[in-house]
C-alpha cells in the first residue's frame, strides 16, 4: 500500500470529502510526526506503535570500497517500536 492508495481508501470511506482534502489530512498526519521527531519529541500511538529518535555518536567509519577512513558525525536516527495490539494482530491475535 502506497500513500496514494492509502489516500484513495480513506477517500472511498468518506465520500463527503474532496480527495484533495483527504490528501491534505494524510500528509498533515505524517508531517506532524516528522516535526515531532525533528524537535526530539516522541510520538506514541497506542495500539499502533511509537516513533522516537535515537542518538548515534560520532565514529570513524570506513569506505567499504577503498578502505579509507572517514569521520562520521553524530546523528539522530528515527526508530519505530510496534505497539502491543498491532504486534498481537500480526501474530494472529
Amino acid at each position: 500500500m502506497t500513500k496514494s492508495e492509502l489516500i484513495q481508501r480513506i477517500a472511498e470511506r468518506n465520500p463527503h470529502l474532496y480527495q484533495r482534502d483527504v490528501a491534505r489530512i494524510v500528509n498533515t498526519i505524517f508531517d506532524e510526526i516528522g516535526s515531532a521527531l525533528e524537535r526530539g519529541d516522541r510520538v506514541e500511538l497506542r495500539g499502533f506503535g511509537a516513533f522516537s529518535t535515537k542518538q548515534r555518536d560520532a565514529r570513524t567509519g570506513r569506505n567499504p570500497r577503498t578502505g579509507d577512513t572517514v569521520d562520521v558525525d553524530a546523528k539522530a536516527v528515527p526508530y519505530f517500536k510496534t505497539g502491543k495490539q498491532l504486534r498481537e494482530r500480526l501474530n494472529g491475535g
Binding site: 506532524e32 510526526i33 515531532a36 516522541r42 510520538v43 497506542r46
Partner: peptide, 10 residues
Amino acid sequence: AGRTITRADL
C-alpha cells in the same frame, strides 16, 4: 526527549 505527541495532537 521533550514531550510525547499522541493521537490527540495529530
